[in-house]
Design a protein around this nucleic acid. Structure first.
Length: 159
DNA sequence: GCCAACGTTGGC
DNA sequence: GCCAACGTTGGC
């Protein structure tokens, strides 16, 4: 059973184009317990991920990625030189977790936030709720598919 | 740049 | 355990 997710990245921190260049990346630096729990417990190899650019105009989904490695400790959390360092995390007792993702499909046309807000079918999508800030969130399959279609694609393009 | 929403921290 | 203060996120 494949699940669907949305992950946010700031455009000027780690953009979709960089993921394409890198081929895959570890999703390090998440320091929120809800998001951590999802990466540690719920995200499985093969799960689909909408790659969302935040902090840009307009914010948008740029493409689809896939989980290639399930939750494992975020090693930047015990690297004193990392900006994500957390003195309470250690290899023996890791506090933060991450997954690895790889790009699957680059959208022909991005799907921006105003467009998503205009869709009745996406009305109850968590992303669109005021004040929600989770950088990792689940996406119901029907929302996932709807956004794919908005981008001019179908589920077949990611299978 | 503003500010609302939310999470975290720490005093009590 | 409460809650005020503070920091961060992220759309606008």
């Amino acid at each position: 059973m494949t699940n669907h997710w949305l992950m946010k990245s700031e455009l000027d921190v780690y953009p979709w184009s960089q993921l394409q260049i890198d081929g895959w990346t570890h999703w390090d630096g998440v320091r929120n317990y809800q998001a951590r729990n999802m990466m540690r417990d719920d995200m499985k190899v093969g799960d689909m991920v909408m790659f969302y650019h935040s902090n840009c105009k307009p914010p948008h989904v740029a493409g689809i990625a896939r989980v290639r490695r399930e939750g494992y400790p975020d090693f930047t959390s015990w690297d004193a030189k990392s900006k994500y360092y957390d003195e309470k995390s250690s290899p023996d007792n890791p506090r933060w977790f991450m997954v690895d993702i790889e790009p699957v499909l680059s959208f022909d046309s991005i799907v921006d936030l105003p467009s998503m807000r205009g869709e009745v079918n996406l009305e109850d999508m968590p992303l669109l709720r005021k004040g929600q800030r989770l950088s990792v969130q689940p996406v119901p399959e029907e929302h996932f598919e709807h956004i794919l279609r908005m981008a001019g694609h179908t589920m077949e393009d990611v299978e």
